[in-house]
């Protein structure tokens, strides 16, 4: 028996860990199923396409995970992503600023909007669902107003499309041209996973979701931390905005609605509790991958797109019900 902290997981094989395991097993089963069903599925190009398709939803789901672990919810991640993309277009195309300013600007806008959500929730005590629903609509409207409802193209900014579609990895290993968007997703997942488990901010995410009043009574400035968490989530949405704008080489102001639900779905499938207090970035990544694999696999098998949506809905319900069952059994 080792005395390292790593020895702990065996003992605390909690509901969250089991859910992660189940989600991971489901992902493997899906992969096996589709690779048997279709010879095209396991082609490198198809795997890269799945990862590429995961990148935007995955990044948004990471943002949503942070907020959901605190016991909150963020419905504005999708339209905030679009708003950040539009603002990048304003900075780069309309104002003709250099590329780094556009990147920093988009992320900064995300942080500012996240801070506003945080203040609405922590200081003005508006329930997260309502506050972020309001923000969702405000940001959607603003995106349309600022862009004049027309897409903003990045043709004048060479290198912008490289953010997502270029491949740093491909330059080193030409046989696996992993797009940068996917690279960003995995680096972000590692960073936020570290933040969540090894830093004060992460600790307060779990603590707030577990028992906010107890945290407050312990003398912690809960409002400030909550605002910080929403701000961080906002900044991550800014990154998602850059990825999607770069992939489309344009900011599409009408896009964004519906993305928040996909992100929440990935979080839930990955075993993060909507009640707060438990969850993980690894689970969320698996959840996002399950969704992307499913859509891709069904498409390869020529299942109509309408049915893909139906299946995703079924999986969400099944994932949460499996979690509830286990928790009830653990409680009794």
């Amino acid at each position: 028996m080792t005395t390292l902290p790593a020895a702990a997981p065996a003992r605390k094989a909690t509901s969250g860990a089991q859910q992660k395991l189940l989600a991971f097993a489901s992902l493997i089963v899906l992969l096996i199923f589709f690779s048997v069903a279709s010879p095209n599925f396991l082609q490198t190009s198809n795997i890269l396409a799945i990862l590429q398709a995961t990148s935007v939803n995955g990044v948004l789901a990471i943002a949503a995970t942070l907020v959901i672990i605190t016991g909150g919810i963020d419905l504005s991640v999708g339209t905030l992503m679009t708003f950040c993309a539009v603002m990048a277009g304003v900075i780069l195309t309309n104002a003709g600023m250099p590329l780094p300013l556009g990147v920093i600007g988009a992320i900064a806008i995300g942080v500012i909007c996240g801070t506003i959500s945080g203040v609405l929730i922590a200081k003005m005590k508006i329930p997260p669902f309502i506050a972020t629903l309001g923000m969702m609509l405000i940001l959607k409207g603003l995106s349309l107003v600022i862009s004049g409802t027309k897409p903003i193209y990045f043709n004048d900014t060479p290198g912008f499309s490289e953010i997502s579609t270029g491949s740093l990895i491909g330059q080193v290993f030409p046989s696996v041209p992993v797009p940068n968007g996917v690279l960003i997703l995995f680096v972000l997942a590692l960073v936020i996973g570290y933040v969540l488990n090894r830093t004060v901010l992460g600790r307060y995410c779990f603590a707030l979701g577990s028992n906010e009043e107890a945290v407050r009574l312990s003398g912690v400035n809960t409002d400030a931390w909550k605002i910080a968490i929403y701000a961080l989530a906002g900044g991550i949405c800014g990154i998602a905005g850059l990825i999607i704008a770069s992939r489309l080489n344009s900011a599409q102001p009408a896009l964004g609605l519906g993305y928040e639900l996909d992100a929440i779905a990935a979080v839930v499938i990955g075993g993060t509790s909507l009640a707060g207090g438990r969850g993980s970035i690894l689970g969320t990544m698996i959840g996002a991958l399950i969704m992307a694999v499913l859509l891709n696999g069904l498409r390869i098998m020529s299942v109509a797109q309408e049915w893909q949506t139906v299946v995703t809905g079924g999986i969400i319900i099944a994932a949460v019900y499996a979690d509830m069952l286990r928790r009830r059994r653990a409680a009794s």
Binding site: R203, F206, A207, G209, S210, N211, A214, V215, S218, G219, V220, G277, R278
Partner: peptide
């Protein structure tokens, strides 16, 4: 905070 460990609870904040 039920989801946190004993030590994490003791030193919260």
């Amino acid at each position: 905070m039920n989801d946190l460990t004993v030590a994490q609870n003791i030193f919260i904040g």
